[in-house]
């Protein structure tokens, strides 16, 4: 989506993007003014794979920053910390793209951890991208998956479950289900695939329709 973003913009949008990139090349500090303006200048329409125009334009701008590693991580954190929700989502979306290019290492993890501490489900979901899933330590990854289930963030959007969903995460899900059952509340169906490989943990959970069949 990032390399082809220009084809989705109007002529004015392309001109603005090119000028914004030139400003960043002249002075990286220009990012503070152009990054927030992307939606107003280029639009906010939906693209494929959950991207939006403003988000793809913002990530395109970030990729032009002449920084790597720790200094890049610090600048991204600053943009994230003082960004509105759209800007924060764009920074989170950029992490996997930077990582694919080998530019970020662990330096984006403080952003992922901050997003997971919020109560905004959009940020929580975006934090569990390929980058977060690959880089979070096991304890933090499990807590994040549980928080997703707890706050209603669909696990279909959470990366890394095939390789990282272990027995301890299954135990946490089973305990969560018991707690919900005891309270007479609905158990989110998202937890059952995680319990799939651990039938002993599933035993006794009355809302496990799959186990009962």
């Amino acid at each position: 989506m990032i390399p082809t973003i220009r084809s989705y913009l109007t002529g004015d949008g392309v001109s603005w993007l090119d000028a914004a990139i030139a400003k960043i090349h002249a002075d990286a500090g220009a990012i503070f003014a152009v990054f927030p303006a992307a939606g107003r200048r280029c639009g906010r329409g939906a693209l494929d794979d959950g991207w939006t125009v403003d988000q793809a334009v913002r990530v395109t701008l970030l990729l032009e920053l002449p920084l790597d590693g720790e200094p890049l991580g610090l600048l991204l954190f600053d943009l994230y910390a003082h960004g509105d929700a759209g800007e924060r989502l764009a920074v989170l979306a950029s992490l996997s793209v930077f990582d694919d290019a080998g530019r970020l290492g662990e330096a984006g993890l403080p952003i992922v951890r901050d997003a997971l501490r919020t109560s905004d489900t959009r940020l929580i979901g975006a934090a569990m991208s390929r980058y977060g899933a690959a880089r979070l330590p096991a304890e933090a990854y499990r807590q994040a998956v549980l928080k997703c289930v707890f706050t209603g963030v669909p696990l279909s959007g959470v990366a890394g479950l095939e390789s990282r969903a272990d027995r301890e995460l299954a135990r946490m899900m089973a305990d969560f289900a018991k707690e919900r059952e005891a309270a007479g509340r609905v158990v989110p169906p998202d937890i059952w695939p995680i319990l799939e490989r651990h039938p002993d943990l599933r035993a006794g959970l009355s809302s496990d329709t799959k186990g009962a069949s």
Binding site: A81, A85, S119
Partner: peptide, 14 residues
């Protein structure tokens, strides 16, 4: 103030 402004742009609209 930065925290307050961030809240006006983040948590409150949400």
């Amino acid at each position: 103030f930065a925290d307050y402004f961030d809240g006006l742009l983040g948590w409150e609209p949400y």
